[in-house]
Nucleic acid binder design. Structure first.
Length: 423
RNA sequence: AGAGAGGUGGCCGAGUGGUUGAAGGCGCACGCUUGGAAAGCGUGUAUUCCGUUAUCGCGGAAUCGAGGGUUCGAAUCCCUUCCUCUCUGCCA
């Protein structure tokens, strides 16, 4: 959510920024500012009326104390009118504030200057690429065939128990998953992130805080009985740890990591791209979240990108980094770098991490603030990234490291898997 | 799930209808003290909104879990709801 003060002072800049992400309703900004102005006028009126009745109440109290009952009762009559006016104004303000909020939640974050403009993923900018794309003597098998061949993952069993998109991992397949989770967590902890185990269900306020609600309402599994949502990412519970917090300067930055399963309804997804592990309703992910001072958030983002880079390099996977264009940017993000590993067998890039800064967009909703060195209060910046999402890394490992005799485990993982080969 | 108790500032905690935005303490900041630190002493220390102002500031309003109600006036009384704790029940 964008701050009202910012929008009031920079309406043109805001519209220009939003144009970069093809925001189709720039007139909402004008509407919002108009409503805001009405709200302020009403607030002024209300404050004046309340001030009067406070004064009267005070006088009445004094009169009663000194036994002047008649005069007190006269004043009482006066307050009755004020009460009616107050009630009316309060109702108007309540309504206008609801309108304001609904408008504010429809306006996405403003992209950073360096975000390229563009409509869709074709306009994303590749900023880094590394690793050798393996060449195979025969045709390489896709991971879903390898998974069956080596008895690692059972998709049918998952459908039987739950439905499509809920795979069952078996034997070395299950161990590989667990090894990766552990490996990623260790990497993150070594880099200074504190590990958390968080709830996998969150309430409405948490969903609103990080921006999943109301924007992605239909993408989350919702338990109506208790009005709770299954988390689509650990970002939600992790960031909400600090909801409504006033932090001191020296507490920042806050670096958190956590492993959770992630649940996504993926309504509207279809086709070959959802095959195998490519798109699941439930998957495992290790997330990193940072809460930063505004002046440090860009450096911090670079640091997170480097961190994920190092992990992928250590896993010996070929990958590239994309700077997302305005049109491909998430609703809450101001700047996002996507990591994609190359899958030799599928001959396509698979997104395994998305690292973003939200600037103060989430902090505004979450009310996470800090006191700077001069004691002034300001909103923090929030950032997060996957470090990393498991299934597509598994897909990449299986497909890229297949050899005649099986699948080779990269050096860095062997200590975690306890085996060097899947065969 | 049933019974009871409770939710007050960054934290602890007093406050049962009228200058209570809220005593006291802790913490924090600054100053004095000290060779330096600690202790001690002193001062200060909530947030949001509206208005005003070049700025410091000033004036007003709201906020004692949340929402509603009673009253001229509510942290204090009533209702609803959420949460926490204790006991009982159920259960990993």
């Amino acid at each position: 959510m964008l701050s009202l003060v910012y929008l009031r002072e920079n309406p043109t800049k805001a519209k220009e920024g939003l144009a970069k992400r093809n925001f189709s309703h720039p007139e909402l900004i004008d509407q919002l500012l108009e409503i805001d102005q009405n709200r302020r006028a009403l607030q002024t009126q209300l404050d004046e009326v309340l001030s009067k009745s406070n004064q009267l109440s005070n006088d009445i109290g004094i009169l009663f104390k000194s036994g002047k009952k008649v005069e007190a009762n006269n004043l009482k009559v006066e307050t009755l009118n004020l009460k009616i006016v107050t009630k009316d104004l309060q109702e108007q303000i309540q309504k206008i504030e609801a309108d304001l909020m609904s408008l504010r939640t429809q306006i996405p974050n403003i992209p950073e200057d360096i975000v390229p403009s563009g409509n869709n993923e074709d306009n994303n900018e590749e900023v880094f690429r590394t690793g050798l794309i393996p060449e195979f003597p025969q045709k390489a098998l896709p991971h879903w065939e390898l998974a069956t061949k080596y008895n690692l993952i059972d998709f049918d069993l998952g459908s039987k128990i739950t439905g499509a998109g809920f795979p069952v991992y078996k034997g070395k397949g299950a161990k590989l998953q667990r090894a990766l989770i552990q490996y990623f967590l260790d990497k993150n902890i070594d880099a200074g992130y504190k590990e958390y185990q968080v709830p996998h269900l969150v309430n409405e306020l948490s969903g609103f805080g990080t921006g999943q609600l109301p924007d992605k309402e239909g993408q989350m599994y919702h338990i109506k009985e208790d009005n709770l949502y299954l988390i689509p990412t650990a970002e939600v519970p992790l960031t909400n740890i600090y909801r409504n917090k006033l932090l001191s300067n020296k507490e920042l930055p806050i670096c958190m990591t956590g492993y959770t399963p992630c649940f996504r309804r993926e309504a509207g997804s279809y086709g070959a791209n959802v095959r195998g592990l490519n798109r699941l309703h439930q998957f495992d992910k290790v997330e990193i979240v940072r809460i930063e001072r505004p002046d440090n958030s860009r450096d911090s983002l670079d640091g997170m990108v480097d961190h994920v880079k190092n992990i992928l390099a250590e896993l010996e996977l070929p990958f590239r980094i994309l700077k997302l264009c305005g049109g491909d940017l998430g609703f809450t993000s101001a700047l996002t770098f996507d990591f994609e590993i190359y899958s030799a067998a599928q001959e396509r890039w698979l997104e395994v991490s998305s690292v973003s800064t939200f600037n103060s967009f989430q902090a505004e909703r979450l009310k996470i603030r800090y006191k700077d060195s001069e004691g002034k209060k300001a909103l923090v910046h929030t950032l997060n990234g996957s470090s990393l999402a498991i299934p597509r890394v598994v897909a990449g490992l299986l497909e890229n490291f297949q050899v005649k005799s099986g699948i080779k485990i990269p050096e860095a993982l062997i200590a975690y898997t306890g085996f060097e080969m899947i065969d």
